[in-house]
Amino acid sequence: MTDITGALLTALINHGQWLLGAVLFLAALGVPLPASVLLLAAGAFARQGVLDPLSAALTGSVAAVSGDLTSYALGRGLGTRLPDRWREGDTWRGAADMFGRWGVWAVLVTRFLLTPLALPVNLLAGSTRYPLARFLLPVVVGEIAWVLLFGGLGYAFAQSWERVSAWADDSAGLLLGAALVALGAWGLRRLQHRQGTAR
């Protein structure tokens, strides 16, 4: 456990759900904070009576969704400042088209399964002008699922939540690696297909 994680866990006991909300909000903006570990700890502390489970879950969900919406807005604002040659290029249009087709699933899965990719997905959604109405539903569903999943694991395994946290970190790394390999293979196949049709 790092020094910052230890300090945040102590602060979570002292400041409760407001500290949890602040960490989840900042983590959604890309600040490297141990959000999943804090959720597990919050679940364990709720089981021990330190936190109110319903208030902590509600605060965590609202904070995470707010952070996602803020990073989406940042992407939307930054996207308009990019040079026209970038925004009108094939790569940018391809990303926007792909996001138009798979955006809902990309947003949903990166909320609770492939969480390290959540910020890039938020920025891409905003910068490609993905409709806010379509972005919001998977964000809300995914963040609630994330809060309930990790908070619930902490609650269920309150006596050994640190071991569950280590397992979750390892699993997240493996899932992210597998997703990146799959994405690379898909991109390679698309490139080979385009080269084949161009001949």
Rank of each mutant, 00 (worst) to 15 (best):
P116F: 15
V104P: 02
R134H: 13
A133F: 06
W105I: 12
A96H: 08
T110A: 13
V140G: 02
L123G: 10
S127H: 07
F99S: 01
L113C: 13
R134A: 15
G154F: 08
L117V: 06
L153A: 13
V109Y: 03
L119F: 10
W105Y: 12
T115D: 07
V107T: 14
V147A: 04
Y130Q: 13
P116Y: 14
F99G: 02
V147F: 02
L136P: 00
V109M: 07
T128C: 11
L119I: 15
R134M: 08
F112K: 01
G126W: 05
L123D: 08
G152S: 12
A145D: 01
A145H: 03
L119C: 03
L119W: 10
P116S: 14
G151I: 04
L113E: 04
G100I: 04
T115M: 10
Y130C: 10
W146I: 00
F99E: 01
L119P: 01
L124Y: 05
P120H: 09
G142Y: 01
L149N: 03
P116E: 11
L149A: 14
A96D: 05
V139N: 08
L148S: 03
L153M: 15
P131T: 15
P116W: 15
M98C: 09
W146A: 14
G154V: 14
A145G: 07
